[in-house]
């Protein structure tokens, strides 16, 4: 029993540190999953684009306090960020059927101007390997995932914005 235990731990952590290292392969993209947006339109997640400008994909839920803090914090700066870098944010809600009807009123109630996708059965969440929200991915103009971050603490938005600035095509 102990040996199995040891082996699993060893294998698990070995595998992880292997994969989390620099893969040197092709850059990661958003996998293709068919989701619906707030208006009921079907979106193919792999086709997300923003005219060559940065995209932030943020996984959240109405019951997730750090997620709401993150999206509220970004909302306070959203106009400036968009103006300066051309970025936009897609908020992927993993709320299931219990809370799904509250998502649209919630987004409007908070005054968020993000595009919102429903991932009610966690399909995109699984495809992108998200454990628990909030989880944020940053895509460059080619759709490559260049940065990702789990959790949110006040101040994290500044690190995210620094990363956005690195890839934004800013006209001097």
């Amino acid at each position: 029993m102990k040996k199995v235990f040891l082996f699993v731990v060893l294998a698990g952590f070995g595998l992880m540190s292997m994969i989390s290292g620099d893969e040197g392969g092709a850059p990661k993209k958003v996998p293709s999953v068919m989701l619906k947006d707030l208006d009921g339109n079907t979106v193919n997640t792999a086709e997300v684009s923003n005219d060559g400008n940065p995209i932030v994909i943020s996984f959240w839920a109405t019951w997730c306090k750090p997620c709401i803090l993150e999206l509220n914090t970004i909302a306070e700066n959203y106009d400036d960020w968009q103006e300066e870098t051309g970025m936009r944010l897609v908020a992927v809600t993993i709320d299931d059927e219990r809370n799904k009807p509250k998502v649209k009123p919630f987004v409007d109630g908070k005054g968020w101007e993000y595009e919102v996708w429903y991932d009610s059965n966690s399909e995109l969440r699984r495809a992108m390997g998200v454990n628990n929200p909030p989880q944020t991915f940053l895509l460059n103009g080619e759709g490559d995932i260049v940065y990702s971050h789990n959790g949110f603490m006040p101040g994290d938005e500044e690190e995210l914005y620094d990363e956005i600035l690195k890839i934004a095509d800013i006209e001097e």
Partner: peptide, 27 residues
């Protein structure tokens, strides 16, 4: 074991040409 596993991982060089690996872990 954890230490060993992590060290081994650092030296391993997976070669992924085309395609991507995603996933997650929880212990």
């Amino acid at each position: 074991g954890i230490l060993l596993g992590s060290c081994l991982g650092v030296f391993a060089q997976p070669s992924l040409s085309g395609g991507q690996v995603t996933g997650n872990h929880e212990t």
